[in-house]
Design a binder for these strands. Sequence first.
DNA 1: CTTCGTTCATTGAACAGCCATTCAATATAT
DNA 2: ATATATTGAATGGCTGTTCAATGAACGAAG
Lengths: 199, 199
Amino acid sequence: MARVGVESIRRQQLIDATLEVIEIHGFQGATIGKIAAASELSVGIVSHYFGGKQGLLEATMRYLLSCLQEDASKLMAGQPNTPRECLMAIVDANFSGVQTHAQSAKTWLAFWTQAMHSPELMRLQRVNERRLLSNLIFHLRKLMPGESAQATAQTLAAMIDGFWLRAAMSEGRIEPDQAVALCKTYIDQAIKANNGASE
Amino acid sequence: MARVGVESIRRQQLIDATLEVIEIHGFQGATIGKIAAASELSVGIVSHYFGGKQGLLEATMRYLLSCLQEDASKLMAGQPNTPRECLMAIVDANFSGVQTHAQSAKTWLAFWTQAMHSPELMRLQRVNERRLLSNLIFHLRKLMPGESAQATAQTLAAMIDGFWLRAAMSEGRIEPDQAVALCKTYIDQAIKANNGASE
DNA sequence: CTTCGTTCATTGAACAGCCATTCAATATAT
DNA sequence: ATATATTGAATGGCTGTTCAATGAACGAAG
């Protein structure tokens, strides 16, 4: 038998196929049959490795979240990192995946929708949301009073989600550059409007 | 048969039932059978009045859009209406539906997702998006240069969508008041940051 | 080197359940 | 009596899951 973890290879194959199928056919149209066909594997293997369709979907969302986190880590590593630069890097990280994978925005939206009726997916979504928010607050606190930092972080988080949503909508042609620029403009506006009040 | 438009009564019955079922079971779980049961009508009547499930869903989305527009009209009518007050009213209008119908956010998200794979729903979504954007730009132009107005409008639109998304996520407990407050804070920040440059 | 048996990976047809749609039958109003 | 409104069982298609059969890799024995 193949010595090197066949399991991890197959799992990734199926996750990739899932993303591919969701992009084309949407969440509703993502059937085991289509996923199996896209992965060039059989339908039975899904249950074998993930216990069922739900397991595969959860694994796929975990994979997307881990990609996002990895992007963020890369961009944050080895920078001078003034608070402002950190914030800008976070914004970049949150849109870096979009450029290469225009479809990922659609997939995210599909998962958001699905998460509302699946406790496990909801939990994953919450964890990620919390992390983004506390990251933003951590850096903003160095630039403005705590209360303003809280408000600015929530506004910025909503803005990022909103641009993702818009990206998912605008069929094919999306402009992450513009979204990043607008977010950064907002950050500078917020800093200017609030600084001098704390330090 | 009943002289007064039975048709419009039945149609509204089915639309209401659709919203109810989507809220409880999600978009995927919204089957003809459940909708028929919730409306206390039969399954056959859906095809009779809407031609099929897809027709019912489109009609339901149109209904939601018309509610949003109606809310907006009410809030815009009979005000002194400085440009700034108009902007604030638009923000209020975009969150006024949330308070009474916490579940409508979930339904909106479901429709957004569905819209990506249904040209007709996508068209409706686009029309609505355009209207919001051009409304915002119209009023912002009186307060800042055209380019800034464009950017501010896009940012604000994304922000509104983002807060809706967040409202849909936070199970039950949502705070539209906070979203409105943060949007308004942003508007004032944007005005302050850009005024004096144009007039 | 070849053969064979064991083990794990993989297949895909069969199955049972759910869904939207249809339409002949029924009910109701004029 | 006629036209319209409504029903809901029957239908056919699609879905996720299961599991007996098949295939592939490896080590041991000859």
